[in-house]
Amino acid sequence: MTTFDINQYRITEEPFYQAQVNEVALYEAAYAARLPVMLKGPTGCGKSRFVEHMAWKLGKPLITVACNEDMTASDLVGRYLLDANGTRWIDGPLTLAARYGAICYLDEVVEARQDTTVVIHPLTDHRRNLPLDKKGELVTAHPDFQLVISYNPGYQSLMKDLKQSTKQRFAAMEFDYASADVEAGIVEKETGVDAGLAAQLVRIAVTARNLKGHGLDEGISTRLLVYAATLIKQGIPAADACRMALVRPITDDADIRDTLDHAIDAIFG
């Protein structure tokens, strides 16, 4: 039987993360107590990068699951598979993290069906175990195991939200887009563009975020600003790069698109 190597999930190089307030200290305290943590905030504001940075800083393996509406409980905990010798059990990512002592990060957990998320409950209270009903095994969580989930509360409907019975099992941290100067510094660091260009890109993002709730479901994320700066570094004219990376991904509404295009022309025209 092949021994599973959890070290393949270790992050070997420091992921860049610019702290905004005291989130690093808060997370370190939560991890020290092995509290489950919920990260709340808009799309592309740095939640996933933060988890990667903290896993690197703490020296712990990180297993990330991108949740979706088709995900089943078996996708998380594991299943029996047929092979040449009959059937064998394959641990899912949640089971691997619990068994071997990794941080398990369920990204956009609200996208998963509510009956799927129930399987995390025994891992998020005093029991710290995971029943594998199909296998007849009870996995006791490794001392280093921690569960982290993220979601975007501003993007959820009443029909698609976490149950209170799930929410109240987590300590929660709120994230938002950084202040303009900090966000410009992030774009500059991530892409190598000059500070002036980074600041101009952030001005466009601020314009779009002010339209949230007035025709836009989501504003321009920090991630998209990095994309725009990357295109500019590739030699694409700034206005074209901004339309491609900042405007076209977030809206199909002609009026909103024209408003943002005008803002781009005012800055880069």
Results as ranks from 00 to 15, higher is better:
I120C: 06
Q114V: 10
G101T: 15
L81F: 14
V77Y: 01
W89Y: 14
G101H: 04
T124H: 09
R113L: 12
D125H: 03
N129M: 12
E108P: 00
G101W: 03
P122I: 12
G92T: 02
R99G: 06
R127L: 04
N85V: 05
L106G: 00
Y80M: 06
D115C: 13
I103N: 04
A84H: 08
P93T: 14
L106I: 14
R99D: 12
D125K: 01
I120E: 00
L82N: 08
V77R: 13
L96A: 08
A97Y: 11
D75C: 02
C104E: 02
R99E: 13
P93H: 14
Y105F: 14
L96V: 07
R128N: 06
D107A: 10
A97G: 10
P131F: 08
I103Q: 05
Y80K: 10
D83L: 10
T95D: 05
L81K: 07
A102E: 08
H121S: 08
L82Q: 05
I120D: 00
R88W: 07
L123S: 06
G78R: 06
R128M: 04
M71G: 04
T116D: 10
R79E: 15
Y100F: 14
L106F: 04
D91K: 11
A112Q: 04
A84N: 11
T72L: 10
T95M: 04
A102G: 14
A98R: 13
D115W: 11
P131E: 11
V118T: 14
S74H: 06
L138T: 02
R79Q: 14
M71V: 13
T95C: 14
A84L: 05
T95Y: 05
S74Y: 04
E137M: 06
L130V: 00
E108R: 00
G86M: 03
D107Q: 10
D75K: 00
R79H: 13
R127N: 03
L76I: 02
G86Y: 02
T87W: 01
A97E: 02
T124P: 15
T87N: 01
L132Q: 09
Y100E: 09
M71I: 09
Q114K: 15
R99T: 12
